[in-house]
Amino acid sequence: MPIIEANGLSKTYRVYQKQEGLFGALVGLFSREYKDVVAVDNVSFTIEPGEIVGFLGPNGAGKTTTLKMLAGLIYPTSGSATVLGHVPWEREDAFRRRFSLVMGQKNQLWWDLPAADSFQLHREIYSLPSDQFDATLSELTELFGVKDLTSQPVRELSLGERMKMELIAALLHQPQLLLLDEPTIGLDVIAQVTIQKCLRDYNAARGVTVLLTSHYMRDVEALCKRVLVITHGKLVYDGSLAGIVDRFGNEKLVKLQFDGDDSPADVATFGEVTSREGPIVELKVDRARVPEVLAAILQRYTVADISINEPPLDRMIAKVFEQGTV
């Protein structure tokens, strides 16, 4: 049975159009205009147990709104969903005990108290048996490498350590589903990598299902085999990360090192020059034309070295975002 099943989820909300100027404010007292904003538009997908799925999209594309609907925080305007066998927005206690939502830019722990106190409170809110709680807590602090930090006030922790504490708090009740919204936002590269490792290890150990949104392609590359891409509220891609390359990567980067100190002047006629430094040139070439272009170059010049690469993933994703639809 899939962990998440979303069918045609849509969310439209209204925003108040503020009128400008003093006169506008006076008019606003008596009549107000609203605009309907479509945040999520007919999104359907399923996620199987144990998967780690990346949820990609530019700012305001509807990622967080979708996560919130799956967490049962907000009602969809239309569509249906089943999460862990429950309708999420009915918010039964049994459902709420079985998942967690962590938002990278929000803080759920008590700021002025040690994390250990927040964990205790968590134990009472989820009514976890003491022995189970102690075992889980020591397992998690071990896994995340923060055993000595739980008795320090949260405000004294670094951003990366705080995120680990947030994740521990979210995992204490052993949820089967973990929804993560930008878990590595604002972290430096080293902290990002440790968080990724923690998540991967925990997924391997416990088989927890993870749905995560992130701006950092590194997170997605490191963790997710499968991605969902959403732009303007619409799901435009659902499949493997490699599949994006097949679908959207219709160009290759050809890197050439010519003999001598300089590159030929007419090299730009073979493709778009993306960089040029002395004898080394990088060209962007349509995938279908690569053999033809290479043959022509090799025929006319002496080339010391050739490499053919895929464009970087984040550039490709950016292109998907720009195009909006497939």
Binding site: A71, R96, L101, K106
Partner: peptide
């Protein structure tokens, strides 16, 4: 601020 969300997530 939207922090009310965290209150709604708890089974209480």
């Amino acid at each position: 601020s939207g922090d009310l969300d965290f209150f709604l997530l708890r089974p209480i």
